[in-house]
């Protein structure tokens, strides 16, 4: 009770009702497969300071993962930024530019060595000594080698930093690689991959919460993906699964079968080979997900899916 009162007091001036906040916490605990009684503990973990420092690096990417995180609704992104974590370096949204931000990066890494969370968005170009991607006169490969090993842990947000991503698709002109692969020789700290193109922000926030709550990273599968989000296939959780079992398939876009929401297996759905929780949590505050919009899953949370899962409209 004491805790609840304290929380209520802390959150109200931020325009967050207690109900909003608890809704998020329940959702996160559901995503992570925890008992509902964990919800208050998550709330506490998210609102007690000092805020853990985060360095967010952008390499060969499209910023879609950043955009996905900006769509976080429980907690809202302003709460994440102002009250939950301290994002000390993030090129897309930080106020400063040029020399001033380089200084921030160096200072943060130095001050919090071994203590900051390093989030990486984007693949790392490695061909021709990394010259295909440069920031402030340094290659992305150099920056990654300098910053990532000094972190507490590396969270790879999205399929690019996890596995190389779209720029790593054949013939991979820039030699793009995921972080674990590109830094295999130098990286000794734990790495968590949160793939997806982009991933659902709830899975990123869930990973952060896991750390804040338990002081450790979530359990991972053999591809370093958190089991709470990537433990089952899309197919196994799909609300259209019964149509699959009944042999009821869409065979043309816009057909009667499409209007009735039949199974998309024949149209090329990669759900049976893709591990993710899209059907369960859906996107943008639970609004929809690809199969609900009548489009096959393209397998975007699997390694090398741009080559392994394409042509996308061909039946598995």
């Amino acid at each position: 009770m004491e805790l609840e009162r304290k929380l209520q007091k802390g959150l109200e001036p931020k325009g967050v009702t207690r109900r909003d906040f608890m809704k998020f916490c329940t959702m996160v605990s559901a995503t992570m497969g925890l008992a509902p009684s964990f919800a208050p503990k998550i709330a506490q973990a998210l609102s007690s300071g000092p805020r853990p420092p985060v360095v967010y690096l952008h390499f060969a990417e499209c910023t879609g993962c950043t955009e996905a995180v900006l769509r976080s609704t429980y907690p809202w992104i302003d709460e994440l930024l102002l009250e939950t974590i301290s994002v000390d370096y993030h090129e897309t949204i930080m106020a400063a530019a040029g020399h001033s931000v380089e200084e921030v990066l160096h200072q943060t890494v130095k001050k919090y060595e071994g203590k900051f969370i390093c989030v990486v968005e984007g693949g790392i170009p490695t061909a021709d000594n990394g010259i295909y991607g440069m920031i402030g006169g340094k290659t992305m490969l150099e920056i990654a080698k300098e910053v990532c090993p000094k972190s507490l842990a590396v969270l790879c947000i999205g399929s690019c930093s996890s596995f190389g991503g779209v720029q790593a698709a054949a013939p991979n002109p820039t030699g793009a690689k995921g972080v674990s692969d590109a830094l295999a020789d130098v990286l000794k700290v734990p790495v968590v991959n949160i793939p997806g193109c982009p991933p659902n922000p709830i899975n990123f926030v869930g990973t952060v919460v896991n750390y804040l709550l338990f002081g450790k990273l979530p359990d991972l599968d053999d591809k370093k993906r958190p089991l709470f989000a990537y433990g089952k296939t899309v197919h196994d959780q799909c609300p259209r699964r019964s149509h699959f079992e009944n042999g009821e398939f869409v065979k043309e876009w816009g057909s009667k079968e499409a209007q009735m929401g039949y199974c998309l297996y024949e149209m090329g759905c990669k759900g049976p080979e893709t591990y993710n929780n899209c059907p369960l949590v859906k996107f943008n505050d639970g609004t929809s997900w690809p199969v609900e919009a009548g489009h096959p899953c393209i397998g975007c949370s699997e390694p090398n899916f741009w080559d392994a899962m394409s042509p996308f409209y061909q039946k598995l």
Partner: peptide, 17 residues
């Protein structure tokens, strides 16, 4: 379906019937 990176277009129309 989602944002960013929508997934309801197809050549010849849209998939969200």
């Amino acid at each position: 379906a989602k944002n960013p990176h929508l997934q309801s277009l197809v050549v010849g129309g849209v998939s969200c019937a």
